[in-house]
Amino acid sequence: MTETEIPEKQEKRSLRFRVVDILLILMMVLPLVTAVALRVLLTPPEEGVAIHGAWVYWCANPDADLSQVISTDFMITEAQVNSWLVMISITGLALFLTHGLRERATTVRQHVAEWVVEKVEGLVTSSMGAFHVRPFAPFVCAIIALSVFSSLMSLLGVFTPTSDMSVVSGWAILVFLVITAYKACCGPRLYVKTFTSDGPVVAVLNVIGEVATPVSMAFRHYGNVMSGAVIGVLVTTFLTWLSSLLLGWLPGVLGEIPLLRVGLPAVLSVYFDLFSGALQAYIFAMLTMIYVGGGFPLEEYVKRHSGRKARQGETARAA
């Protein structure tokens, strides 16, 4: 019975299904194209070595002095725009993978989607315990996806959002809020007690350590990605100089081509862009899970929660 029905259904909605599919693929690809186009159109051409932060695309006050470290002007930089575009692209990817889900997986994309979900749930279970899987698996998966795809943006030649301090700081502050919310879920008294339980001197250190959490998370991600980019540029520049020194005597155009530049920067890029980017995403997500899982007073929460449930049950029974 099902064998005859399913193909008919597929036939019926195939046109609409395909149109939506194409729209979703466009939603995945267009933001990336937009990022490249914005990069080409809005930034001045670079000559020679260029290590710089994100370009400012738009600023509320056009006469602002952009060389200041802390500027109070509202501005939109390349890093922000790229991270928004990555978010749109990831949303498109997620919708595409989950489009046309069936109870029994038949398509490749459903297998991929199920694989991702199972892997992330396994990761959360192994590092936080089964209690947190439901609320936390989507959050962790979002962090990993955003971080990985942001780091991979450098393969398109555009500015990587994760090598901008402000983007990663935003993520770290968000994670810090989540950690604090989970620590304080059993009331403020218990939250304060986690700091002051070992005496006043240790309490100060505890507070400093708590504040250092988001700072170190942001620095870690930003520092790794940024240092990789800087090393890549430095090595490339050095190889260009070396090849002009060694091969400059070759006649004509041959002498101008930086032949030594072939190879090594690509290997470095595989390490710094692909491996390091994915590793930092994993580390960021793992640290999030460890901090939340470690700070969450599970026993107390379960005690109170079950108590409330029991009381609710009693009132229900009384009514």
Partner: peptide, 20 residues
């Protein structure tokens, strides 16, 4: 080990950010 390395890296990254 990867987690431990990430934690141990922190001081070096503080220095890196200062240097940058």
């Amino acid at each position: 080990m990867i987690m431990g390395c990430a934690i141990a890296e922190t001081t070096g990254l503080y220095a890196l950010v200062i240097a940058i």
